[in-house]
Amino acid sequence: MNIIVCAKQVVDVREIKIDKQTNKPILKGIGKTISDIDKNAVEEAIKLKEENKDTKVTVLSVAPFDAREQVKELLAMGADEAVLVSPPEEFDYNTVSTLLAKAIEKIGDYDLILCGEASVDLFSGQMGPRIAGLLDIPQITYARAMSIEGDKVRAERDLTDKAVKMESTFPVLITVTKEINKPRLPSLMGILGAASKPIIEWDGSDLLEERMEPGIKSVDLRGVSMERKNVVYGEDPEEGVRKLVISLGKEGLLG
């Protein structure tokens, strides 16, 4: 079986600060990482590989080639191969999903495509359903559990108000939630082994028949600062409680 996992390199959102002068988030110089829910998707693929013989796991990412460093960690976790597709200068969700779908077609022989339910930076969750739509295959989103039985995949979707059990033959695309598993840390053996696993680089413009105009352009990015008082009572609990109640009273929140 061939599994393709789509993973996105994102800025580490925990590090983002707002520039007080310009009121814009400072994105330069912030650490990059693989979006954490995508790691759940990689973990699920590796588990399936461990359970099903002759399974190959390919990680696919639309990202500048400097994402090699991040992608290596997914190879160290246990994925077999990675494909990086460089994006054009201007792109939107439509461009990126088209590049992913084209790359998947170029990889060719696929049974299962796994994505995180959304990326932690923008939290849109468009990629999975978009790719499934472009490839014209079924989509099973928000899977919190899944298993493969013979020529079928079964998954349980969490739709907030309902839990829906789905099944499908291959090929199929599944997006997973954080509950589905706990991503493993790469072992030292995995880290050493990752050095010799292939990372293939494709130029995005070669995959597109013609230049794609973005359907959406970001025209502004405004910082939203969350200034909090950060008064912490660290002494004994009795004293902390007393001071907290006084403070809440002053805020007019009691009674």
């Binding site: 969700y93 439509n94 468009q126 499934a132 739509g133 989509q139 739709l159 973005p214 359907g215």
Partner: peptide, 23 residues
């Protein structure tokens, strides 16, 4: 914008090759 709507909107946007904004 519940989970049904989001997955529908995204797939629809792909089918129509158009822009989509979630939430």
């Amino acid at each position: 914008s519940n989970k049904y709507g989001k997955e529908l909107a995204s797939r629809l946007a792909a089918k129509l090759s158009t822009g989509c904004v979630i939430d």
